[in-house]
Each structure stands twice: as structure tokens, then as C-alpha cells.
Amino acid sequence: MQTEVTAPHPVDRHIGQQIRIRRIQSDVSQSELAKGIGVSFQQLQKYERGINRVSASMLYEVASCLKVPVAAFFEGLPEPGAGDLSQIAAKIDERIAYISTTEGRELIGYILQLPSRVRSRLLSLVSALIEG
């Protein structure tokens, strides 16, 4: 008897991607986070890909280890019943792919060195370039 393999739920993928984003932002390796929350490296990879769901207690442990609020993992999700969830994962996949590159991390590092006011103006400039 074969088991039907289904794609991860978009919310599970989103939570996993948010874990990865927060981990990278915190400059924590997968091995370090896995050890910190008491799971194997492979299990953390499955969480980050959304293959395995993260329980509420495990999400709390991840948040504690990364020193972020639990709510941070839900940022970017529409209100329940408010929209199509399939588009969310695609947008975040692109962000993670870029953040994971040397260029992406270098760019973010430079941006973070700018004063808040300059970052805000830079964001406005980039937004205007995209719209124009």
C-alpha cells in the first residue's frame, strides 16, 4: 500500500521560511539552532523547508533560542480567510534565495550600517526606481 505524498501546507512552508530568515538574520548556523532546540540538523532542515510541521512548543523553543517573538514567524501571512496562501511561499522563496547568497548578506550588512533615516530614504529611492 502506497502512501500519498502531499505538498507542505503554505503556512507550514511560511513558518519554516521565517525560521530560516530569522536564523540567518541572527547569524546562527543550522547546527547551532538544532542543538539549541534539541533536534537533529536534519530535523531542522525539514522544519525550514516546511516538510515537517513545527509544533507550538517547538516554535516557542525556536523563538527563545533566536531571541525573537513567536509572532515574528507569522509576519507576512494574510489574516485567516483573507486570501490565497500559495502566492506567499513563492515571494519568500526568492527573498531567502537572495539572502542566502554572499551578495545578499553583504548588501544587507551595508544597509544595516546606514543610519535609520538614510535607510528609509534608500527604500523610497528603490521603490521609485521599481515603479518608474
Rank of each mutant, 00 (worst) to 15 (best):
A89W: 03
V62Q: 03
R53C: 02
T101N: 02
Y98A: 15
S86R: 14
N52V: 02
A71N: 08
A89T: 15
V70F: 06
D93P: 01
S86W: 02
A63P: 02
P80F: 01
P80H: 01
Y60A: 12
Y60C: 06
T101I: 04
E103I: 11
G83V: 06
V54G: 02
I88H: 11
G109E: 08
L107E: 02
F74P: 00
L107T: 12
G109V: 00
I92E: 13
C65D: 01
F73M: 01
L66F: 03
E94P: 00
T101A: 03
L107W: 13
A56E: 15
S57G: 05
E79S: 09
G83K: 03
F74K: 00
G83L: 06
C65S: 07
V62C: 01
G81A: 11
S57D: 13
D84F: 00
T102V: 15
A72F: 08
G81P: 07
Q87M: 10
S57R: 09
G76I: 04
V54H: 02
V70Y: 00
Y98E: 15
S55A: 15
A97H: 11
A82F: 12
M58F: 00
L85I: 04
S64V: 06
N52A: 10
G104M: 05
C65A: 12
N52E: 07
G104S: 05
Y60Q: 12
A89N: 13
L77F: 06
Q87W: 04
S57K: 04
S55L: 09
P78A: 00
G83A: 07
G76T: 03
G104Y: 01
I99D: 09
G109F: 04
R53T: 07
G81V: 07
G109C: 05
R105D: 09
T101G: 02
F74V: 01
A72S: 11
S55H: 07
L66R: 08
G109D: 05
I96F: 02
G76L: 00
S55Q: 11
F73R: 00
G83C: 01
A71P: 00
K67N: 15
V68D: 04
S57T: 15
Q87S: 13
E79F: 12
V54T: 13
